[in-house]
């Protein structure tokens, strides 16, 4: 077995961060948050389009559609994960989890996917608000994920 070599390197990034001038950390956070917020409507439209694609896959119920379902669910997590979408993010994450587990186990169950897409639409329609409805929906999704 070869010996591990350990050493320290100061990255160019570390040096640049300390360059004179610059801005207050809180100002940078505020600017970045404001710029990110301009994408919210487009992001939510992309989530709706992805849900449409998921519904189409569910209707088709093709045998080899599992990886495509996982990829679509992942893309919802990716986009929703930039905003405070609470239950929407968690429901999409649950869909990733259940489809990943079913792919690993090589058993596929379309009703588990359909329940998730319906829950995602309900959450989206309620403005991604946290409340008793969203908590009940997420609890139901968790029970599906745990049983798969």
């Amino acid at each position: 077995m070869s010996e591990a070599r350990t050493f320290k390197i100061k990255s160019t990034l570390a040096r640049q961060l300390q360059d004179p001038g610059g801005s207050q950390v809180r100002d940078l956070e505020r600017q970045a948050t404001a710029r990110l917020e301009t994408h919210r409507d487009d992001a939510m439209a992309a989530v709706v389009a992805t849900l449409d694609a998921l519904d189409a896959l569910c209707a088709e119920a093709a045998i080899d559609a599992g990886p495509r379902v996982y990829a679509l669910a992942s893309s919802i997590v990716d986009v929703a994960g930039y905003f405070d979408t609470g239950p929407l993010f968690h429901a999409a994450y649950s869909l990733c989890e259940v489809s990943d587990r079913m792919l690993q186990a090589e058993t596929w169950h379309w009703p588990s996917i359909q329940v998730h897409t319906q829950a995602l639409r309900l959450i989206l329609a309620s403005g991604c608000r946290v409340g008793r409805t969203s908590e009940t929906l997420l609890a139901g999704l968790r029970s599906i994920t745990q049983s798969r």
Binding site: T12, L13, Q16, L17, Q18, D19, P20, G21, G22, S23, Q24, V25, L28
Partner: peptide, 11 residues
């Protein structure tokens, strides 16, 4: 301390 000002303009 945590830096108050940082500069990423050249990065």
């Amino acid at each position: 301390s945590t830096p108050d000002r940082v500069n990423l303009a050249r990065s």
